[in-house]
Design a protein around this nucleic acid. Structure first.
Length: 550
RNA sequence: GACCCGUUGGUGAAGCGGUUUAACACGCCGCCCUCUCAAGGCGGUAGUUUCAUGGGUUCAAAUCCCAUACGGGCCA
């Protein structure tokens, strides 16, 4: 058996060779400086906030350089794979409106000429390259079992050696061909390992776009490149995929920084050009005074659909992502109104090397600001979309009472200093329910009367107001003048300053009177501008609501 | 245990050897405006013999170097 036949024997049923694939995926024809990036999630559960973060960052990097942004599914760990994992990823990118140029677009379809973009569909490709390494004696089959590896580890711990399958510990490294063939014919299971030429005592230096200069020992461990199930390990798949897809910049979590020597080594052994690397700090969470990466398993809020459920506009989430990536984002974004999140020129240099703590307060703030800039109609539509999925009862009311809803949402909206009282779509219902008759049936004890609670006094105020002062046609100024007049007539202070100077001279003040009217009309002591609320309610509803107290 | 990365107020951070009495934003607090709330205005909070700690280099260090501590990661 020559080496070629040997490779065929070890990795059987491979249709094509490396030459075929090199031709199939030619160099991309892009302008100078174009960045080709990918986000490469695993379908192992819900879509993580960090995936979205990387997606948005990569999207901007590619778009602003005239490059390409790909989505690649890393599903080589079939044990951890979750049903619908892939569809969820696709849906997440769609929902957050992060569009990729290439990658899967449904369970069965994908776009782009450098696919397949799902690793489990690339077996033949990996096989071809594994074979090429075996042919050159740069990879070999290994029969070591998990148990034996465990023992080796123990042995190394005891003897205080570095842990791993390397050098003299890599006993399968020089197994004669005949022995290998015999073992396999006997049905022994094997994996393919890289025959690492590295020397741990040699340091290599490389430049990470985020971390800067990094120095590490060369890799000398014979890592597995092809597992028993015929699928590659992360290390190998990364190198092959990004080579064939012509990725120019590898952006990924900094947990991968320590495997960089392996990846660089693999590139060299395969004769590939080494791409640029950018190891991005993870998003952290504080728990019991300690920081840790937000995790899929422990932190349900890391699920990107949590924000959807909470009704946080995607724009707010994206703004937050950008702020985390480059802190000059906000300043840039606020320069003028034409700025779009997707056009933000993100840079590696401005990425922080340490992980940032996830800050819900900040997202809420961005959400408030974003919502405040919407028109009432836009806001209404977004609330409705949200409610149809998460609060159908409210959705029905919104559809029925669209005019009133828009009017109340429109109070003090627009202009340069809009109200900012809604922090999410889910926040709206509890803020405006009282305007709708369908929802407005509070019990008497639920009315939030404040300083004036005497039913007799309340009755007098409401009656006087309705009979002598209320006129639906009044403008806000006239309306408020009348409130003040009434206030004085009833022995209260119309002017707050005067009241503050001599509170003992009055029964109360104009705020107390307004509160009675407000509470009688809405049951709540805090609402937006009372005049607007009364205008929306209209005479009939006001009379009906006041009647309860008269 | 080996190797690697990090550490500026409660949070995100600016800072890249002298222009720093360490920007800006979020949060928090107070006052003003005011019919309540929100928004807005003003001020404060909070790192302030300080940039984790200790040494060093330098005329000069948050900024450069080394060590330690503590976080984080990775290998198994």
């Amino acid at each position: 058996m020559n080496r070629k036949e040997y490779a065929d024997f070890l990795v059987p049923n491979i249709q094509h060779d490396t030459e075929y694939y090199e031709k199939k995926y030619p160099k991309r024809n892009l302008k100078e400086g174009a960045i080709v990036v990918r986000v490469a999630p695993s379908p192992t559960g819900f879509v993580h906030f960090g995936t979205l973060f990387q997606g948005q960052v990569n999207h901007n990097l590619a778009k602003n350089s005239g490059g390409v942004f790909m989505l690649r599914i890393e599903d080589t760990d079939q044990k951890r794979e979750v049903e619908n994992g892939i569809s969820e990823i696709i849906e997440a990118f769609r929902f957050y409106n992060i569009t990729y140029d290439e990658g899967p677009i449904s369970k069965t379809e994908e776009k782009g000429n450098y696919g397949p973009y799902t690793q489990s569909k690339r077996k033949d490709i990996y096989g071809a390259y594994v074979k090429s390494l075996i042919e050159k004696d740069l990879a070999y089959p290994s029969f070591i079992t998990e148990e034996e590896l465990e023992n080796l580890r123990h042995e190394q711990e005891v003897s205080k050696s570095r842990i791993g399958y390397y050098g003299r510990f890599a006993t399968d490294r020089n197994l004669p061909m005949e022995e290998v063939i015999q073992k396999i014919k006997n049905g022994e299971k094997y994996v393919i390992r890289l025959k690492s030429p590295g020397n741990f005592d040699h340091k290599i230096t490389f430049y990470d776009l985020v971390k800067g200069k990094v120095e590490m020992p060369e890799n000398d461990i014979d890592h597995v490149i092809l597992k028993g199930d015929g699928l590659p390990t992360y290390h190998f798949a990364h190198v092959i995929d990004d080579h064939l897809m012509h990725t120019t910049h590898i952006t990924r979590g900094d947990e991968w920084l320590s495997s960089l020597p392996i990846h660089i080594q693999m590139h060299e052994m395969l004769g590939f050009e080494v791409p640029q690397y950018a190891h991005i700090a993870p998003i952290m969470k504080e728990e019991d005074g300690k920081r840790r990466k937000i995790s899929k398993r422990k932190d349900p809020e890391a699920n990107v659909f949590e924000f959807k459920k909470q009704g946080i506009p995607i724009e707010a989430v994206k703004e937050y992502l950008m702020t985390l990536s480059n802190s000059n984002f906000e300043a840039w974004f606020e320069e003028d109104e034409t700025k779009e999140i997707d056009h933000f020129p993100i840079t590696f240099e401005k990425m922080n090397v340490a992980g940032a703590l996830f800050d819900m307060e900040k997202i809420i703030n961005l959400s408030k600001n974003f919502i405040a800039r919407l028109t009432a109609e836009e806001f209404f539509q977004r609330i409705l979309n949200w409610a149809e999925e998460y609060d159908t009862n409210f959705a029905n009311i919104l559809k029925k009472e669209k005019q009133d809803a828009i009017r109340i949402l429109n109070i003090e909206r627009g202009g340069i200093k809009p109200r900012k009282d809604y922090s999410s779509y889910s926040d709206v219902h509890k803020n405006i329910w009282y305007i709708f008759d369908e929802e407005f049936h509070p019990k008497k004890e639920e009315y939030e009367f404040d300083k004036i609670t005497d039913p007799e006094e309340i009755k007098i105020i409401l009656k006087t107001y309705l009979e002598k002062y209320y006129n639906e046609e009044d403008t806000q100024d006239v309306w408020f003048d009348k409130i003040k007049q009434m206030t004085q007539t009833l022995g209260y202070a119309a002017n707050m300053k005067e009241y503050k100077q001599n509170p003992e001279k009055y029964k109360g003040n104009v705020a107390d009177i307004s509160t009675v009217i407000r509470v009688a009309a809405t049951s709540k002591k805090q609402t937006p501008n009372l005049y607007d609320i009364l205008q929306i309610l209209g005479k009939e509803r006001i009379q009906k609501r006041f009647a309860k107290w008269m």
